[in-house]
Write a protein that binds this DNA or RNA. Structure first.
Length: 328
RNA sequence: AGGGCAGUAGCUCAAUUGGCAGAGCAGCUGAUUCCAAAUCAGCAGGUUGAGGGUUCAAGUCCUUCCUGCCCUGCCA
């Protein structure tokens, strides 16, 4: 049975980019045959977090978000990375076969350095821990976005290096599943760049009402009046609208914007429509979230069970690695 | 490890011989706008890396420590 693995960092509230770029696919995959491991990458989050209170709350919120969006916590294995200390043991073992050159080539690391970030050792060895995450459960399939593809390749390299070094088939080679972006354009943020927490241009999934509308106000527009005909395909707003509106309405709006004139919707109208679209889209999930927020025991139970299952799996992989390398 | 330089608001920096900790940008609120942007008005933002000392008074002087960068070394 194929083993699927996905992880997400609890470094903030999850936003539309997270949803359309990853979470939606994760939840869809979890309904397919096979085993499904979903971990909340809290060890990873610690490379940037210095706020225990916030981290605790984000870890919880991340779990709740997945469950609210339809992940079945009983059939899939949802757990905290740090509930499986075996991954740090395996990470050490992998670190002994990972070359400096391999890690220095990591583009996400180089990007952060280029931005002037002072790297910790943890940030530098991040790909080793991630490789351990992937390999600890014998994953076959790792769905990732393009930005994480290199990390999966590195996991493949480290698995191969370890196996070759000790002439043993300890780690299974994982294959990445690149999320196809053909159907949906990538999700732009409020400023038109890719939506990302580091650009501060995100919209929280569960935002509603005034705060939501306020967030949407920041979406970049220009000063053309509603009546002026415009090409809707050049408008950032439509990149977001198309995610939430059905085809009929979308085409109607586009036509109206293209023709301009008296009845044409202005940017303000489009922002209102987008706000409604977002609220409606996530309404069921928001309800589910409220239930989970009220019933904290349920979330704890799911995470605890997930942690046990994951830990058992990781322990057996670790034991084989210890054996192969001569530590046992 | 030794020597040198540095640390002030989220960011970049200022503060005279020791004398009320400030500015620009970012942020928030309002006006304006179809919504924004721009502009205008306003608001907020700090244990001056930490501790100790000198002094009427310390961002500033002395001292210990922490962190970062540079140089010179040492070493499983």
């Amino acid at each position: 049975m194929a083993v699927h693995l996905s992880g997400i960092q609890p470094s903030g509230l999850l936003h539309l980019g997270n949803y359309f770029g990853a979470i939606r696919q994760h939840v869809a995959l979890s309904e397919q045959k096979g085993e499904h491991f979903y971990f909340i990458a809290d060890y990873h989050a610690l490379t940037s977090s210095r706020d225990p209170e916030a981290l605790r709350s984000y870890i919880r919120e991340t779990a709740i978000t997945y469950l609210a969006l339809g992940l079945d916590g009983d059939s899939a294995c949802l757990f905290r990375q740090s509930d499986v200390p075996e991954v740090t043991e395996i990470a050490w073992l992998l670190g002994t076969v990972a070359g400096m050159g391999l890690l220095e080539r990591a583009t996400s690391y180089k990007d952060k350095i280029a931005k002037g970030l002072k790297p910790s050792v943890g940030l530098f060895t991040y790909p080793v821990l991630m490789a351990s995450d992937i390999l600890a459960y014998g994953s076959d399939i790792v769905p990732v976005g393009k930005d994480q593809a290199q990390h999966v390749e590195m996991a493949q390299d480290m698995a191969a290096s370890f196996n070759a070094a000790f002439d043993a088939e300890v780690f299974r080679r994982p294959e990445m599943l690149l999320s196809e972006e053909k159907s949906s354009r990538k999700v732009p943020g409020l400023d038109g760049q890719k939506m990302s927490k580091s650009y501060d241009n995100t919209i929280w999934l569960f935002e509603t009402g005034k705060p939501l509308r306020k967030a949407l106000n920041r979406i970049v527009t220009d000063s053309r009046p509603p009546t002026e005909p415009k090409n809707p395909d050049e408008l950032l707003l439509f990149d977001l609208l198309h995610l939430f509106l059905d085809d009929g309405e979308l085409q109607q709006l586009k036509t109206s914007v293209r023709e301009g004139g008296e009845g044409a919707p202005g940017y303000g109208d489009l922002k209102n429509r987008l706000a409604e679209g977002i609220e409606d889209w996530f309404a069921p999930a928001r309800e589910k979230r409220e239930l989970l927020l009220a019933d904290t025991g349920e979330v704890d139970r799911i995470l605890a069970r997930g942690g046990e299952v994951a830990r058992e799996r990781a322990a057996s992989v670790r034991d084989r690695a210890l054996e192969a390398s001569g530590l046992r």
